[in-house]
Each structure stands twice: as structure tokens, then as C-alpha cells.
Design a protein around this nucleic acid. Structure first.
Length: 308
DNA sequence: TGCCAGGAGTTAG
DNA sequence: CTAACTCATGGC
């Protein structure tokens, strides 16, 4: 479970509410696919935190069963969060002749893009730079416990929400270093005062992809990749195509010449090639390569030097 | 010990 | 535009 203040699992006598969907959906694949870090396993399912909501959820075939922990959970909010209205079959029909992508879709059908809280998504992917999933999760847990709001749920434990910008304003640069963020601390510390002014996710959601990207990358610490993650995983801009080391390997192995190294050139090519919903292609290619399902050549990923 | 982890900023050419 | 270096830290 996520950010537990105790080790209690969910109350097995509590009522679970059904949420049905059409088409393919895999709760497990979606949560495990590296786009979202505010979840944990609990019993037969998962505890998830997004924005003010903490809830338990499990999947039995074509029905999700859920129960609010922080309070009542709106099923329409859940549909939107998990993007249950996306028609995956229709989306992937566009790539019917893409051998690699089509095979990956058939293997992992049900993996969906989420629609996360933009602020929390930004925090997470600022933490993600040159890091790994366990550490990202740990960083977020530390921030939640130190600066977030604690949600008490009768008899089922306590959960800490991620802090909002106003709550995080209490953290000094030193505090954030102390939270284990490393060099990412100054990026987060620099972003907090911009929130609500220069960066306003409510108005950002209304802008087209290019303009949103320009605004996001104007923030110190948000580059093209992190900006694309925010656009794809939170703002619902499916044309975003985040390029990390894995995606770079896939593109260089199966799509574009390894001579095209820089993300600056690669990203527009990929977006043009995969089209208006390129982000779904990206997520399947990412998961496919990380899981070993898609073979990739090593040594093609030097566009982003690790360290000297 | 050395290398990697869903990068980005800065500087030099 | 590209290339090389730096930024911290945990884990194996």
C-alpha cells in the first residue's frame, strides 16, 4: 500500500464497489509500467493515491472493485484516472502494419496511459531523473510523510498524501537534500514558488502540445523528456512521446538510424511517425523493451551520456 | 571498485 | 547544432 503509516492491510469486511469497463484493461500492467509511483500492493489488489484520493482497488476479469480509503471515491473520477474510455483496439488499429508494435500490443493489451494529477506527476518525474523506480517511490514517500497531509482511515492504517505546492513551500533547499533528492532538490525547490503563477496546470491543460511544452521546459530542471511525461501521463496530450534511454534503444534498433542521436531530432520524428496518439506507442514500446519482450541493440543509447 | 538508474544545465566547439 | 562534463545517491 502506498505511504502507509502502519502495516495494516485493508479491511476485508469492507464493501467493494464494482466498476465495469469495455475493452482490454490490466490494472497490474498499468500500475507497474513506470508511469506512476503512488501505489502499492495490498491483499489481492492495490492501494493507490492520487491527489486527495486514496483507495483500494482490485481487478477480477472485466470488473474493477474498489473502496475509498480517504473518503468516497467518485466512479467517474476513477474512469478518468484510468482512462477507461480510451478505445485501445481502435488506437492500435492505426499501427496494424507495425510488426514490433502490434506484437507488443497483443502481448500487453490492457496497459493504459493514466491521467494523473499534474502537480504530483511533475514531482515524480523531477525525482525520476537519473534515478530508478524504487528510489523514486522512496523519495515521494519521504516528501509525503514530511510535508503532506496524513489521512487516517478507521482501523485500516494511515496514509500520507503528497504535499501540494503550498505545503512544500515549508521545505528549505537543505530539507529537500535531506529528503534524499540529491541534485533534484534544487529543481523542486525552484519550481514551488512558480506554482500558480508562471506554471498553472489548470490553464496549461487548455493549451496545445507545443505551447505547453515551451512553458514546462522554461522551468529549471524540466527538459523535453520530463515535459513529455507530464503532458502524456497527466495532461492527456497523447501526442507526447517521452524519449528515455530505453525508448532511444528501441527507436535506434527498429525505427530510425542510430546516427540520429539527440532527443531534439528524434522526438519530432517519432511524433510524426506514430501520429496524434504516439504516446500510446511509446508506452508499449517502453514496457516491451524493459520487460525484454522487444529486443534492442546495446550501444545505441549514447546520446545521453551517463557520467564522465 | 565501478557502473547504472525512464535527465537536464552549462559550456565549448 | 553536437559533444563532454557535472550534478548526488543507493544498489548491486
Amino acid at each position: 500500500m502506498f505511504f502507509p503509516e502502519s502495516t495494516a492491510t485493508h479491511d476485508s469486511t469492507g464493501n467493494l464497489y464494482p466498476l465495469r469497463f469495455s475493452g482490454a484493461f490490466s490494472l497490474e500492467l498499468t500500475l507497474e509500467s513506470g508511469q506512476f509511483f503512488q501505489w502499492g500492493r495490498s491483499g489481492d489488489g492495490f492501494v493507490v493515491q492520487s491527489g486527495p484520493n486514496v483507495f483500494y482497488i482490485e481487478q477480477r476479469n472485466h470488473t474493477l472493485w474498489y473502496r475509498g480509503i480517504s473518503g468516497v471515491i467518485d466512479p467517474q473520477w476513477l474512469r478518468r484516472f484510468f482512462r477507461l474510455d480510451d478505445n485501445l483496439a481502435e488506437i492500435f488499429r492505426e499501427w496494424a502494419y507495425e510488426g514490433v508494435l502490434q506484437r507488443t500490443y497483443e502481448r500487453f493489451a490492457g496497459l493504459r496511459i493514466l491521467r494523473q494529477d499534474p502537480w504530483e506527476c511533475t514531482l515524480a518525474f523531477l525525482c525520476s531523473m537519473a534515478s530508478n523506480i524504487p528510489r523514486i517511490t522512496g523519495n515521494l514517500q519521504t516528501l509525503a510523510r514530511r510535508y503532506g497531509t496524513t489521512v487516517a482511515s478507521g482501523g485500516t492504517g494511515r496514509y500520507a498524501l503528497l504535499p501540494g505546492p503550498d505545503q512544500l513551500r515549508a521545505a528549505s533547499l537543505e530539507d529537500l537534500y535531506d529528503a534524499g533528492l540529491g541534485f533534484r532538490a534544487r529543481y523542486i525547490h525552484g519550481l514551488v514558488p512558480k506554482m500558480g503563477g508562471e506554471i498553472d496546470f489548470i490553464s496549461l491543460a487548455e493549451l496545445p502540445y507545443e505551447e505547453t511544452g515551451r512553458l514546462l521546459t522554461s522551468v529549471h530542471g524540466i527538459g523535453a523528456k520530463v515535459a513529455d511525461c507530464i503532458q502524456l501521463f497527466a495532461l492527456g496530450n497523447l501526442e507526447a512521446f517521452p524519449i528515455d534511454t530505453w525508448i532511444r534503444k528501441v527507436l535506434h534498433t527498429h525505427y530510425f538510424s542510430p546516427e540520429i542521436r539527440s532527443t531534439k531530432r528524434l522526438a519530432p520524428m517519432a511524433r510524426d511517425y506514430f501520429g496524434s496518439r504516439a504516446g500510446y506507442a511509446q508506452q508499449y514500446l517502453f514496457h516491451g523493451s524493459r520487460s525484454g519482450f522487444i529486443a534492442v541493440k546495446e550501444g545505441t543509447s549514447s546520446g545521453v551520456p551517463g557520467r564522465g
